Simulated assay, not measured.
Amino acid sequence: MLLRQLAGGRNDAIIADEIQMDYLIATEGFQGQFKKASLRYEQQRDIYLALSKKSPYIDQLTQFNITLGYMVQEGRVENIIASYFEALGKAKNTE
């Protein structure tokens, strides 16, 4: 909704997580319509994932945390994000 408001001139600016907003801009067809501000929040921000206590996978939570920790340390999470945006860009260019 915020992107539509920004594109329609109802908002002058929005503040959002850069990766999430880049994804929404690409998937919702707003490429090239906005300019990013040069202000960046440089302090590290942790991202959290949650699993319901009622989830059928709750018994695998420890293994999930261990595996995710290794993936972050090895740079695999960053690679997944980069490759996803690369694939998204290629898909958008072929439309």
Score class of each variant (00 low, 15 high):
residue 1 M to G: 07
residue 2 L to N: 10
residue 2 L to W: 01
residue 2 L to K: 12
residue 3 L to D: 01
residue 3 L to K: 08
residue 4 R to V: 09
residue 4 R to T: 09
residue 4 R to W: 00
residue 4 R to Y: 03
residue 4 R to C: 06
residue 5 Q to D: 13
residue 7 A to K: 10
residue 8 G to L: 08
residue 8 G to E: 03
residue 9 G to W: 00
residue 9 G to C: 04
residue 11 N to P: 09
residue 12 D to Q: 10
residue 13 A to D: 03
residue 15 I to S: 08
residue 16 A to K: 07
residue 17 D to C: 14
residue 17 D to Q: 12
residue 17 D to W: 02
residue 17 D to F: 02
residue 18 E to D: 07
residue 19 I to D: 15
residue 20 Q to T: 13
residue 20 Q to N: 15
residue 21 M to H: 01
residue 21 M to R: 08
residue 22 D to G: 03
residue 22 D to F: 01
residue 22 D to L: 11
residue 22 D to Q: 13
residue 23 Y to G: 03
residue 23 Y to T: 04
residue 24 L to D: 11
residue 25 I to E: 03
residue 25 I to Q: 05
residue 25 I to V: 15
residue 26 A to P: 02
residue 28 E to R: 15
residue 28 E to W: 09
residue 29 G to I: 10
residue 30 F to C: 11
residue 31 Q to Y: 13
residue 31 Q to P: 10
residue 31 Q to G: 11
residue 31 Q to R: 15
residue 32 G to D: 03
residue 32 G to I: 02
residue 32 G to P: 12
residue 34 F to E: 05
residue 34 F to N: 06
residue 34 F to Y: 02
residue 35 K to T: 15
residue 35 K to I: 13
residue 36 K to P: 06
residue 36 K to C: 07
residue 37 A to L: 11
residue 37 A to P: 00
residue 38 S to W: 03
residue 38 S to N: 09
residue 40 R to W: 09
residue 40 R to N: 06
residue 41 Y to P: 00
residue 41 Y to C: 10
residue 41 Y to S: 05
residue 41 Y to A: 09
residue 42 E to D: 04
residue 43 Q to S: 09
residue 43 Q to N: 04
residue 44 Q to K: 14
residue 44 Q to V: 11
residue 45 R to Y: 01
residue 46 D to Y: 01
residue 46 D to H: 02
residue 47 I to P: 00
residue 48 Y to Q: 05
residue 48 Y to D: 05
residue 48 Y to K: 09
residue 49 L to I: 14
residue 49 L to P: 00
residue 51 L to S: 02
residue 55 S to G: 04
residue 55 S to N: 03
residue 56 P to Y: 00
residue 56 P to H: 03
residue 56 P to F: 00
residue 57 Y to T: 01
residue 57 Y to H: 09
residue 58 I to T: 12
residue 59 D to W: 02
residue 60 Q to I: 02
residue 61 L to G: 04
residue 61 L to D: 06
residue 62 T to Q: 11
residue 63 Q to P: 01
residue 63 Q to E: 12
residue 63 Q to D: 11
residue 64 F to W: 08
residue 64 F to P: 08
residue 65 N to G: 12
residue 65 N to T: 12
residue 65 N to D: 09
residue 71 M to H: 04
residue 71 M to E: 03
residue 71 M to Q: 04
residue 72 V to K: 08
residue 72 V to S: 07
residue 73 Q to I: 04
residue 74 E to Y: 10
residue 74 E to W: 14
residue 74 E to D: 13
residue 74 E to S: 10
residue 74 E to I: 01
residue 75 G to H: 10
residue 75 G to R: 07
residue 76 R to A: 10
residue 77 V to S: 06
residue 78 E to K: 15
residue 78 E to H: 13
residue 78 E to L: 11
residue 78 E to Q: 14
residue 79 N to A: 15
residue 79 N to Y: 12
residue 81 I to A: 10
residue 82 A to N: 13
residue 82 A to K: 13
residue 84 Y to S: 12
residue 86 E to R: 09
residue 87 A to N: 06
residue 87 A to P: 00
residue 88 L to P: 05
residue 88 L to A: 05
residue 88 L to Y: 06
residue 90 K to T: 15
residue 91 A to V: 02
residue 91 A to G: 04
residue 91 A to E: 13
residue 92 K to T: 15
residue 92 K to V: 15
residue 94 T to I: 12
residue 94 T to L: 06
residue 94 T to W: 03
residue 94 T to G: 02
residue 95 E to A: 15
residue 95 E to Q: 14
residue 95 E to V: 12
